[in-house]
Write a protein that binds this DNA or RNA. Structure first.
Lengths: 134, 134
DNA sequence: TTTATTGCTTTCGAAACGGAAGTGAAAATA
DNA sequence: TATTTTCACTTCCGTTTCGAAAGCAATAAA
């Protein structure tokens, strides 16, 4: 068994839990699209491998950031969704967006720029828009 | 040569640049302590290896998130400091702290809890406190 | 002149990684 | 009913990244 946390610092501890290149992208998809299936995640632009996706979904479920449940009609499909704990990562994601909009502006998607502008002018509104979906 | 970005998403792009377990901790030390030397970073609680630290400092300097300069009196010491671009990661760090304070409260340091509470009640004040140091 | 410090490099075994192919159960199609 | 396709994994394998430790040259301190 390995130690779970490197220190008692809140920043390093959060990074210990989901500070990899994929976890926040799974959270992102759930924030912006709501319920997602395994297949949905594999269709994201960043092209996560199935092995990595399986691993991350399990970890995020153990951390209680997401839930896994059966599809109402199709028994071989699982539906993933955010918990309140996972939804509370929205502010972290929002700050990444704002930073990238400022410093990677010539690289990111046009629709992302528009959304970033909305985050600047109506932060609470953008936040509520997703928070109130469930 | 490998591709720099996985997609044009602002979140994944930011993670491509500094979405590892160490970069934000280096930024953290610079935010909270100001100028730091190589030795200072190795003394942080998380115990980064020297090979990893050398690698990350170079990357962060190339990204222009930090600067490297000579110590005014000691020629074998280098002094690292944040650029405005690096300082603008403070809001990201602040949101990690707030999330951890809410969900990892029984694990994190007491002084971190107090600081997180200050972030909640006087966000702009906490932000300015560091922003105005230089 | 000797010793200690600093920033950095090298080495090496372990862990994490991406990409591709394969699996079984269930669903859709014929 | 028989066949094919889909879905959520799982396995495999070569590559990259990693932590831990030792070693290094240059400078500073003693």
């Amino acid at each position: 068994m390995k130690k779970e946390f490197r220190s008692d610092c809140p920043i390093s501890s959060a990074l210990d839990l989901f500070g990899d290149k994929w976890s926040l992208l799974i959270i992102r998809d759930l924030v912006y699209f709501g319920e997602r299936t395994f297949k949905d995640f594999t269709n994201a632009a960043e092209r996560i491998s199935t092995a990595r996706l399986t691993d991350r979904l399990c970890k995020l479920e153990k951390l209680e950031l997401i839930t896994k449940s059966n599809h109402p009609t199709n028994r071989k499909v699982f539906v993933y969704d955010l918990t309140a704990k996972g939804m509370d990562l929205f502010p972290v994601i929002a700050e990444y967006i704002k930073w990238s909009n400022k410093y990677l502006n010539d690289h990111i998607a046009e629709e992302a720029k528009a959304y970033a502008a909305m985050l600047e002018t109506d932060r609470q509104g953008a936040l509520n828009h997703f928070m109130q979906r469930r």
